[in-house]
Every structure is written in structure tokens, then in C-alpha cells.
Design a protein around this nucleic acid. Structure first.
Lengths: 148, 148
DNA sequence: AAAATACCTTAGTAAAATTGTCAAGTATTA
DNA sequence: TAATACTTGACAATTTTACTAAGGTATTTT
């Protein structure tokens, strides 16, 4: 249950690939597609959304490709998934576009809302930098080093 | 993103209805269906799964219905959703039945695994009792009262 | 200038998952 | 023994996902 769509997964991995090239040359879409074994055409749709969201910029022409708009440590997984799939909304009544039908006495409303907030809070703490360095929990790691 | 299926939502609400009658008479399926505006036939499938999972028992004959197998405080949301939809598996590579294809260097593996664990940890802390009393965060509430 | 490279956009579509319905039962008790 | 209530399996409608296809635009190197 609660599975993330492949689009979201591809998006995060694509952002990771672009982040790897941060500071160097732009990363061409073809290269990303090969690494992920996804078609260029499909990846284009995904990167297009991320571009419209301002997370990446594109450089046209030979030698072109995609570049991060911000530093890797300033791009959270939450931001990426938000752009691709909208906000976390465990139930439709929590979706800003749909809204709750049965207003009266929705006992589970708070449950799903809380869960959604927990999830997003976690995803906001993880950035591309964390993926690059392999340290998922920055603060936890620092604490460990201090106490060691 | 990360939406829970209606089956899961109905299941939790149905368990809530059954929990409300805990200690009294069994709750007939017809009553649950009316409260939730779902067909009896569909609800039957859901309750059947929950019954096979040992979360509820059924009482046949006139005056019969469904009863909780355990006390409300011993039934977590995690247990309910697990029975209906299997374990939390953000990606297919984390699904026990599918497994990971690209074994080498899956940078996002830990990310999705950690997220899944966070989610399940939260859902294990919330029980039907919490829904009944309206106190989602038992411990947090107690702390607040103490410090007040 | 023109050819090559690479991004950009929209429309459509096949497969899979979801969300149910329907029919024909079986078990229990007033 | 009739009424109530649960049980099971098949299957159909709808929606979502995960793409493919096709044509276009922008930039740079030669």
C-alpha cells in the first residue's frame, strides 16, 4: 500500500543524475535515460514538469542538457515529488482540489492529515545532497560523530 | 501523491464502527454500510479479509454481526491496513513479493525504505481507541496536561 | 547558412489497478 | 421454518498509470 508512482521515482533518480553533474557540464537527457533504462520521450515529460517548477534549467544546442537551479543541499525530495505529483494527500478529502464531502464527524480526518504531515516533514529533511553523499540523516550523523 | 485506496479507508472506518459497539451487541454489516454509504456487497469483501486476518469475528443469525477480536486499544491502524493491502511498500523493489531488479547502486533504496518505516511506525502508534476517544496522540496529550 | 544536437509540447493508447456489482450460496436463531 | 446475516467467487465498469508517437523549437558548431 501507499506506493509511489514510477513517475515520482524516475523524477527523483533523474534529479540525482543532474545533481551529480552539478558544477560541471549540463547533463543531456539521453544520458539520464540510458542510466535509468527509460525512454527519452517519457523522461522529457517528467523533466518538463520539473523545469516548469523551477527546480532545473535547460541548456539547448550541442553540449546542452539539464542543470540544477539551486544547490543540491537546497533541493528536497518533497519539492521534487510535489512538482511531479502534487502534495501528499492520503485521502481525497485532503486533496486541495477535491475537498471533503461528508463534513460531519469524519473520525479519520485527523488521522490521515497527521500521517500526510509526517510524511512530508520527513521528505523535506532529505535533500539531493544527502543522496549524493549517501548520508540520509545529516543531523543524526553529526550527533554520532560528536559523541564518538 | 501517496494516496490510500478507498478499500483501506473503508476498512478503517468499518473497524471504527465495530469498535464503537465493543462490549455491546454485534454490529450488523448493514448498519456499517449505511453509515458509510457503501454497498453491503463491497463491504463484505473488506470485512472478510479482516476476519481472515483475525481482527474481527462474525456472529451469525438474527441479532448477529461483527465483533472485535481484541480490545480497541490493541488494534492499530497499521494492523488493519496490513491485512487489507499488505505492508507499506513505497516502491516495488521494497515489496516482499517483487524484489529489487537493479541490485547495483540503487541510491534511492534507503530513502524509500526509511520513509516506509516512518509511516508504519506512526500507524502502529495509532489504535482504534485513539479514534474512539478522539485523542490521536495519547502520549503527546499526556505531556501537555502534565506541563499545564 | 545549414546541419547537428538537444530540448519542447500535445495527443493518444494499452495495460494494470481500483472499485465496485451480481448471483448463488451457507449458517444460525427466534 | 422463515428470517436474518454472513460467505464466496466471478466478472464488469471505471480510473489511473505508464508509456509511445509525432511534430515542433531553440542553439551552437562548422
Amino acid at each position: 500500500m501507499l506506493r509511489l508512482s514510477r513517475k515520482g521515482q524516475y523524477g527523483v533518480r533523474a534529479m540525482f543524475e543532474i545533481a551529480r553533474g552539478h558544477g560541471n557540464k549540463p547533463v543531456p537527457i539521453k544520458e539520464i535515460a540510458e542510466r535509468q533504462a527509460v525512454s527519452v520521450a517519457y523522461l522529457e515529460q517528467i523533466l518538463n514538469k520539473l523545469k516548469n517548477g523551477g527546480l532545473i534549467r535547460s541548456v539547448k544546442g550541442p553540449g546542452g542538457g539539464y542543470v540544477l537551479s539551486k544547490k543540491p543541499e537546497d533541493v528536497s525530495i518533497s519539492a521534487i515529488l510535489n512538482e511531479l505529483e502534487g502534495p501528499v494527500a492520503i485521502t481525497s478529502c485532503l486533496d486541495p482540489e477535491e475537498g471533503c464531502v461528508r463534513v460531519d464527524g469524519c473520525v479519520t480526518y485527523m488521522l490521515w492529515k497527521s500521517l500526510g504531515e509526517k510524511i512530508d516533514a520527513f521528505l523535506r529533511t532529505v535533500t539531493l545532497k544527502n543522496l549524493l553523499t549517501g548520508t540520509l540523516f545529516k543531523k543524526a550523523d553529526k550527533r554520532l560523530k560528536k559523541s564518538a
